[in-house]
Computed example of a mutant assay.
Amino acid sequence: MIETLQWTTLAVCALVSAARIPSTLRGENRSLFGIFASMTLAILLSIKGPYLVIDQALGGINLANLLLRFVIFGVIFFMGIRISRGFSADSAHRHITGKTGMLVLLFVSVVMVALFFSMDTAGSSAGLQAISAKDARHFALVEYYGAAGRAYPAYVALALVPALVRAAQERLPVLVRIGAALLALGGVAVALTLLFPVIPPELGQIEFVINYTAILCFVIGLALIWAARVVNRRGAAPQKTSTET
């Protein structure tokens, strides 16, 4: 089930990214293509097979996992900027790009890197499972490292959710409201990752479901808002033409 969810999510992200290529080549919304492409890379790095191949190329010391964390940070940062601007969420934008947001990003990044290099990370292991199993010390370090990696995305998501909920309830085009609702759901899912330490090991699959639910909601939500813009543009074109003639 989990593997199917992973590859399905990867396929959806890759297809949406590919659909953005023509617009990107025309110079339209290149940042959106960058977000989708980075999401695709993040999913690829989270799947065991591709992860092992990529990490071996990087030296086999699980640098691919650290890369994955920073790719996610980049995705959530630029997505947060785009969403907050798109929905005129000035407060969320300040929390993400202002002094507080930058300090949170810097602090979490430093802690995460310090924890990573305090471990013996030799031997490629998706999810650092083999590293965690080495001893009690490594188990604790992997848990703290994972918590640090989830902290910044959760911070951005919590900043965005109130504005997205409001947008979903406003008199906006249907596709935009559905997109905002999906983005809000994705934000809630990301915030729920903070609860991963209290999830019993036997229910560990819930973590995968929450993670990939968040990704799918973000990808589909952004795609719907993009589609709404395309529809609006096409609808405005005939009106402009008739006015001119």
Rank of each mutant, 00 (worst) to 15 (best):
V198F: 11
D90E: 15
G86L: 03
F70E: 08
K48G: 03
L66A: 11
E202L: 07
N29A: 13
A42Q: 06
G127N: 10
M112E: 15
L25C: 09
T8Q: 05
S124N: 04
A19W: 01
M1A: 15
L41I: 12
T243K: 14
L216V: 08
A237T: 11
C13R: 03
I220R: 08
S23C: 01
L224W: 03
F87M: 04
L103V: 11
A180P: 06
L67F: 12
Q129E: 13
K99F: 14
F77Q: 13
H95P: 00
R30T: 01
P238F: 11
R137M: 13
F117K: 07
G123C: 04
R94W: 09
R30W: 00
V198R: 07
S109G: 06
M112Q: 15
A19L: 10
L106D: 00
K134S: 12
R171P: 02
G187A: 05
V209Q: 12
G60P: 05
F70A: 08
V174H: 14
Q239C: 10
Y145S: 06
T193Q: 11
R177A: 07
L44P: 07
I2K: 14
F70G: 07
I61S: 14
L10S: 02
T193D: 09
I2P: 05
G149I: 00
R94E: 15
R234C: 09
V104H: 01
G59W: 09
D90G: 14
L52W: 04
T245K: 10
G60F: 07
V230L: 12
A223F: 07
A130H: 10
F78Q: 04
A11T: 13
V174D: 13
A168L: 08
L52T: 12
F116P: 00
I83P: 00
K48R: 15
Y212W: 08
A214Q: 02
Y155N: 03
F107M: 10
M39A: 11
E143L: 12
R150G: 04
G86W: 00
R229M: 09
I83R: 02
K48N: 13
L67T: 13
R85A: 04
C217S: 12
T8P: 02
V104W: 00
G49D: 13
F117N: 09
L41N: 00
L128P: 02
Q6F: 10
P22F: 03
T9V: 05
V198H: 05
A148K: 03
Q205D: 13
K240L: 15
I225L: 11
V161K: 05
S109D: 07
I131W: 01
G149E: 06
A122M: 13
A42G: 08
C13L: 15
A163K: 03
G186R: 01
A114M: 12
G98L: 08
F139S: 14
V16G: 00
F116C: 02
S91T: 14
L222N: 03
M119T: 09
P200C: 07
R171L: 05
Y152C: 01
A181R: 12
L10N: 02
L10Y: 06
L216Q: 06
A191V: 05
M112F: 01
V174E: 14
M112C: 11
I43L: 08
V75M: 06
W226P: 00
L25Q: 12
A14H: 04
L67V: 15
L185W: 02
A214H: 01
E202H: 10
E3S: 14
P50M: 10
P153K: 03
Y212G: 06
I76F: 09
R69M: 09
I54R: 07
A157D: 04
R150K: 15
L195C: 07
W7C: 08
